[in-house]
Design a protein around this nucleic acid. Structure first.
Length: 645
RNA sequence: GGGCCAGUAGCUCAGUUGGCAGAGCCACCGGCUCAUAACCGGUCGGUCCCAGGUUCGAAUCCUGGCUGGCCUACCA
């Protein structure tokens, strides 16, 4: 039996799950279900990435140990999937003992091979910039920003000889056109690889700086860099090197990621595998981002509907369908309630739902709700719709195989529309009127059998609706008994003599919520505490008290001399030693003169920090509103230095 | 500032190696009655971002712009 192995990234647990995570999970689930129906032995892995610097900080901020914190957030992800009907076979955590063992084994293997060396990190440190520069970046041995000679600072670390495998990786990508897909990301990686020499990868962090990580097997003073640790989950979950899972599934490995983590997956990971003597994965599948648009449903309130709220309002299946149908895989797409409602009404209610309802209704009118046996005589319309169905299913399967879900569904809908047209052409009601029951029986069977085919194909995308559709056709669905690849040529799999449902209301039409929200208290979902993952990250009152928020007046604004996006803002907080300087990332949104004289809310006790050489003593609070940025302020003028509470 | 990608109908997007600009939605008109104001047919709709160039021929290839998105340096 063919195998199929798909992975999502292991999600970094410093934030709660959002639409992007949901999308990745849903795709992975749909793909898994599809391959199941194609008769393959599937394995679907997801999990959480729990090591690294950011986790430690997030835990500290919450007054928890890293372990406590990570257990909590990982739990949120594990709870999310069932509510999306995402059915993974395994949930891996990088804090699992088995994972840690495999990471150390891989490290040791790569080390023994001589691909890890001990060296100095960074080197040329510019105090003005607070960062390391490589030789290449320096201009005449000087910092390009400050034109000063940087100081040489050494932090010893371990490096992986990634550069050694650069040539091999370029070759591999060229020889395997669908190693990275869609094409645009393959091109991106190739041009990245061919544009210059790859740097070696620093794979360690001294324990003096960071303890929350996997210890290097060959030096207990160091822990492993998070990416090196995290990527290995894809094989540790399958029990590399000797696990049965590894032998069975690894050759069919498909990674699914969003475009922001292309480089680690397309460059770090294959070279790591190569060094460890492991075959590279089969495909890297890269998807784009969902841009969240203001749905404009309530201008007056100015609130944006949470995407996950959509499940409650419109149903999980419609949501899943929308995500797969609307985004052309690999590209960005924008999420809006209008678009979701548009798809739901046009594709699901009008085309598909209505097709079921009208056909079932006719079956009851003409045949007492029992599937009639077709007459042998096949008319030209029957042959045509069968042919259309074959093409449509072929397209669906071929496109789905390539992860092009929008095209796949578009292809399948040709059959849906074709059937609606078929009804209009053959006019069953006229046949009934003319007592042409033999012909009518054939026509009805053609309809019902094709509807069964549609339902089966739609299961990966809309698992609940598909099961309902089949139930309405009198079919008990069992994914193990279905073979999609045979559906094109098979005919007559729907039993005759079975009772069907009387009506169908799979996808009721919906109206967009009213544009002006005045009188309507029907739909007030904006209370906090909606959705599931709200247990997440409560701040204690003491945490809040730690912040010293004060109102001040902007007395002067200049552009940062060495930065495009930064402004030097002088804010008067009524303090004896005069206005403070705050470096703010507002240059994209405000001209200096726009800010002068305004009152703003400042975090006054934030640890001072230098940004591009300029001291910043605080932070100005602002709200991003789509393309714009709005400043927080008091509703009336208050004395400088007034405390916010 | 550096890198990558994109710009095609009101909207969302297809357009293989250059060969007469396409689909769905929306809108409008007509038809039908089995059906969820549905379905079926038709109509409307384009300076293929702009300017050059290569070519018998460019949405497609080349050069230079403009606009947008993402990554990154710098948004405490």
């Amino acid at each position: 039996m063919d195998s199929f192995y798909i992975t999502t990234p292991i999600f970094y647990v410093n934030a709660k799950p959002h639409l992007g995570h949901a999308y990745t999970g849903i795709i992975a689930d749909a793909v898994t279900r599809f391959h199941k129906l194609m008769g393959r032995d599937t394995f679907f892995l997801t999990g959480t990435d729990e090591h690294g610097d950011k986790i430690v900080k997030a835990a500290e901020a919450n007054g928890e140990t890293p372990k406590e914190y990570v257990d909590k957030i990982s739990g949120l992800f594990q709870q999310l999937w069932p509510s999306l009907k995402v059915e993974n076979d395994k949930f891996i955590r990088t804090t699992d003992a088995a994972h840690i063992k495999v990471v150390q084994d891989v490290l040791q293997k790569v080390y023994d091979k001589g691909d890890i060396y001990f060296g100095e990190y960074g080197g040329h440190y510019c105090f003005g910039c607070e960062r390391f520069y490589t030789e290449k970046e320096l201009v005449d041995g000087k910092c390009p920003q400050h034109e000063t000679e940087p100081e040489y600072i050494a932090e010893k670390n371990y490096f992986f000889k990634m550069s050694k495998y650069q040539g091999w990786l370029i070759e591999h990508i060229k020889k395997n056109p669908d190693f990275i897909r869609p094409e645009r990301y393959r091109k991106e990686v190739l041009s990245l690889l061919e544009s210059g020499a790859l740097e070696d990868l620093c794979i360690s962090r001294p324990k003096s700086r960071l303890e929350w990580g996997i210890e290097l097997p060959f030096d207990t003073e160091y822990v492993c860099y998070v990416w090196f640790d995290a990527l290995i989950n894809y094989i540790s979950a399958q029990g590399w090197p000797d696990g049965d899972g590894f032998k069975e599934y690894w050759p069919a490995a498909n990674h699914l990621i969003a475009k922001d983590i292309l480089k680690p997956h397309a460059v770090f990971w294959p070279t790591m595998l190569k060094s460890a003597g492991i075959e590279p994965y089969q495909h890297l599948n890269v998807h784009g981002y969902w841009l969240i648009k203001d749905t404009k449903m309530s201008k007056s309130l100015g609130n944006v509907v949470e995407p996950l709220e959509m499940i409650k309002t419109y149903g999980l299946d419609a949501f899943r369908y929308f995500l797969l149908r609307e985004m052309s895989f690999g590209q960005d797409a924008s999420f809006s309630e209008e678009a979701l409602v548009g798809r739901l009404n046009a594709d699901l209610a009008n085309d598909l739902g209505n097709l079921f309802n009208r056909t079932l209704s006719m079956t009851h009118k003409y045949f007492d709700g029992v599937i009639p046996a077709p007459d042998d005589a096949e008319e030209i319309e029957d042959a045509e719709i069968k042919k259309l169905g074959q093409n449509s299913m072929e397209t669906f399967q071929a496109e789905f195989e390539q992860m092009r879900f929008a095209r796949a569904l578009e292809g399948l809908w040709e059959l849906v529309r074709g059937l609606n047209k078929y009804i209009d052409t053959v006019q069953p009601w006229a046949l009934y009127k003319n007592k042409n029951m033999k012909r009518l029986a054939t026509v009805m069977y053609v309809m019902l059998e094709n509807m069964r085919k549609i339902a089966v194909h739609v299961w990966p995308v809309m698992p609940e609706a598909a099961v309902n559709m089949l139930k309405q056709l009198g079919v008990e669905f069992d994914p193990r008994k279905v073979d999609l690849s045979k559906e094109m040529d098979a005919w007559g799999l729907l039993d005759t003599g079975t009772a069907v449902a009387e009506t169908s209301n799979l996808f009721p039409r919906v109206d967009l919520p009213a544009t002006d929200e005045q009188g309507k208290n029907g739909k007030q979902a904006k209370t906090p505490g909606k959705g599931k993952p709200e247990t997440e990250l409560f701040a204690e009152f003491e945490d809040f008290q730690k912040l010293d928020l004060r109102v001040g007046t902007v007395v002067n604004v200049e552009k940062h001399p060495d930065a495009d996006r930064l402004l030097l803002v002088r804010v008067d907080l009524g303090e004896a030693d005069g206005p403070r300087q705050v470096v703010a990332g507002l240059a994209d949104f405000f001209q200096p003169e726009d800010l002068k004289g305004r009152q703003v809310v400042v975090v006054a006790n934030l640890k001072p920090r230098k940004l591009r050489k300029q001291l910043s003593q605080g932070m100005i609070l602002a709200v991003k509103n789509g393309e714009k940025m709005e400043l927080l302020t008091a509703s009336g003028n208050v004395p400088e230095g007034s405390k916010v509470s």
